[in-house]
Design a binder for these strands. Structure first.
Length: 614
RNA sequence: GGUCUAGUAGCUCAGCUGGAUAGAGCAACAGAUUUCUAAUCUGUAGGUCUCAGGUUCGAAUCCUGACUGGAUCACCA
């Protein structure tokens, strides 16, 4: 039973009885009543005015009066302007609470038998994870949890981009300059260790490039290739890639290393394996700190040749076409996209080819009904093209592809640019928020007496809640501005604020358990607005999950949870619970039990664990 | 230039499948604790919802156009 839907039908029945008119149910707008008015649900009268030729107030009073008399749902009503506010019978809310508070599955939907494969966090193995990855990881994880709560079966996967020129740069710098140093000997977290050599490569390359710019050869290149009136600095900025691929000695060595890797040269492969293991074990530590995992990792080194056979097949079927130079393309101009290359003229594959192949092998293994990619919105075009191609190839899951495109993370000082050293490192950030939680807790002193381990557990939960909530509360589609100072805030609309409301409920429940509280099933004669506010939100929760799942949008949950926590804080402040008289006490304890469950459940969907005290 | 996307309080964000007086948090100011933990609660102040048209009983929300910002448009990944 759904209150809003039932009311919708009852309004239709009332119109029929009062005016002998059939009115379509879906044209009756039923919404939660706004807080400043009395009532639970509100029906808008305006659409009826033209049809019934009466004032909204008259219609509202007529329908409200009819429902009060005839509906088993409606206790009372009021009409303000064109709005009919309906109050449900207290018994209905009491029944809802009675069922829900004892249901430890409240919020979880029945299984759908739908298999969803979700890909998130696709790092390169040449440097550690940063803030952008954190947004990706939190979104991917949370989405998977939300879909599970909505009843789907979710397979979480990651693609690790472990080959290519970038990792060769790290490898080369290590080989030339490390003198055998390792993460173990240096005591540096292993992914940072590899990242440092990537930076070192860039530094050495920059030095080399500067020498070139001042050499006679460099000056000659500038004079011959510059655009009109182009300054030397501007020219060489643009020329950097070309320099890397032509004159640069380091560039040449790195490219040779890539060729060696492709040939399978044993020493290169051995070094590549070692450095990738370092990076990946570092990633795993960060994933653990963030509380996320994957069912399967795909390594680009094992998948980058995939898809060629599918292109050949599609070529025969006429999905693709071949140019004179033997390169293979697809024409997507009818889909307003363009022509897109899928195989180079030398027969090698591109990124798109690989993605086509990977989607295919995933289907062979998992038979997923739906495939979701959590990737930044800079790749929107790529995924549009990929999805069109998969549709044309008639892949079975092609109708249920989704690119969860999230906006880039910017800093208050501007964009993050690895080259300019303005990237916020994931591990540093995690350390920082936990430290901030510790500072704050030390000042308060509430948990000072706890054993070290228990304290550490709580502080980690608080710090991570601050960081995660700050990121996940923003609508994924929008780019976000990240202010480190705000991310460690523990007051206001934050993760710790929500945790604290949970801790309050938890403390209360511990206390009544010690008193051996037993449910009395008595119903208060009147529900306070603070109680109603909680009930309406709690009642809504399963729908909120459906909505978040349908939109792939964790921020829906984040906003809901904050609102619930806020209402509980107010409830706590305004009304006695344990000290209330019997029917109220009983009711408010059950309310607290359900609030506690829903807070915990919804925060779990965001990947945020709750502390028992703080 | 083509395509996509965003613009709401000083700042960070909700609200966008059209409904009541556009909401939170932060920052500022003023208050509340003999009480189930004040990481809380209450109040004050802060708005041309970028602009101009249109549709509608009703527009922050839908449509059109402009302005501003972002992304993308490689035989890169």
């Amino acid at each position: 039973m759904d209150f809003a839907l039932t009311l919708q039908q009852e309004v239709v029945a009332a119109i029929k009885a009062l005016y002998q008119i059939d009115f379509e149910a879906n044209k009756v707008s039923v919404a939660n009543t706004r807080k400043e008015f009395v009532g639970d649900y509100t029906v808008v009268m305006f659409p009826l005015v033209a049809i019934l030729k009466q004032s909204p107030k008259q219609i509202g009073n007529a329908i409200g009066g009819y429902l009060k008399e005839n509906s088993s749902f409606v206790q009372d009503f009021n009409v303000i302007k064109g709005f009919l506010n309906l109050e449900l019978k207290t018994q209905l809310w009491a029944d809802f609470l009675e069922n829900a508070y004892a249901n430890d599955q409240y919020g979880n939907h029945p299984k759908t038998n739908k298999n969803v494969l979700l890909e998130y966090c696709s790092p390169n193995t040449n440097k550690p994870l940063h803030l952008g990855h954190i947004r990706n990881i939190l979104l991917g994880w949370s989405c998977s949890k939300i879909l599970e709560a909505a009843g789907d079966h979710v397979i979480r996967t990651q693609v690790i981009n472990d080959r290519g020129i970038a990792i060769c740069k790290s490898m080369l710098a290590w080989k030339k300059f490390a003198n055998g140093e390792t993460p173990q000997t240096s005591g540096i977290k292993s992914d940072h260790f590899v990242g440092n050599y990537y930076v070192l490569f860039e530094t050495k390359f920059k030095e080399e490039y500067e020498v070139f710019q001042n050499s006679s050869e460099g000056i000659k290149v500038y004079e011959t290739n510059k655009k009109a009136n182009q300054e030397s600095d501007a020219f060489f900025k643009d020329y950097k890639n070309t320099y890397f691929n032509t004159y640069s000695a380091l560039g040449k060595e790195a490219r040779e290393m890539l060729l060696d890797w492709e040939k399978g040269e044993p020493n290169t492969i051995a070094l590549w394996k070692t450095m990738n293991e370092w990076v990946i074990s570092g990633f795993n530590e960060t994933h653990k700190a963030l509380g996320v995992d994957f069912h399967e990792n795909y390594f680009e080194s094992e998948t980058y040749l995939l898809g060629k056979d599918l292109i050949e097949k599609g070529l025969k079927e006429g999905i693709f076409y071949q140019k004179e130079d033997t390169s293979v393309w697809i024409d997507l101009t009818e889909e307003k996209l363009d022509h897109k290359l899928v195989l180079r003229s030398d027969g090698t594959s591109v990124y798109m080819t690989q993605d086509i192949g990977m989607a295919h092998i995933r289907y062979e293994k998992y038979k997923m009904d739906s495939l979701i990619y959590v990737v930044a919105d800079e790749q929107n075009y790529h995924f549009q093209v990929l999805f069109e191609i998969l549709k044309k190839m008639k892949e079975p899951y092609a109708a249920h592809l989704y690119h969860l495109a999230y906006g880039m993370v910017e800093l208050t000082t501007g964009k993050m640019k690895s080259r300019e050293g303005t990237v916020v490192d994931a591990d540093d950030l995690i350390k920082e928020v936990i430290q901030e939680a510790e500072n704050e807790a030390a000042e308060r002193g509430d948990i000072n007496a706890l054993p070290v381990e228990a304290k550490k557990d709580i502080l980690t939960k608080i710090g991570m809640a601050a960081l995660k909530y700050h990121i996940i509360k923003v609508n994924p589609k929008k780019k976000m501005v990240f202010d480190p100072k705000e991310s460690v805030d523990l007051q206001g609309q934050t993760g710790p604020y929500i945790q604290y409301s949970y801790v309050r409920a938890n403390g209360l429940i511990n206390k009544i358990n010690q008193e051996n509280w037993q449910s009395e099933k008595l119903i208060p004669s009147v529900l306070e607005p603070q109680e109603k506010d909680l009930l309406i939100q709690l009642y809504d929760y399963p729908n909120i999950i459906k909505e978040a799942a349908a939109d792939y949008d964790p921020s829906v949950i984040a906003n809901f949870t904050y609102s619930l926590a806020k209402s509980y804080h107010k409830f706590w402040h305004d009304l006695p619970i344990i000290k209330a008289p019997t029917p109220e006490k009983d009711f408010r304890i059950k309310l607290s039990i359900l609030v506690k469950h829903v807070l915990q459940h919804s925060m779990d969907l965001l990947g945020i664990p709750m502390p028992n005290r703080m």
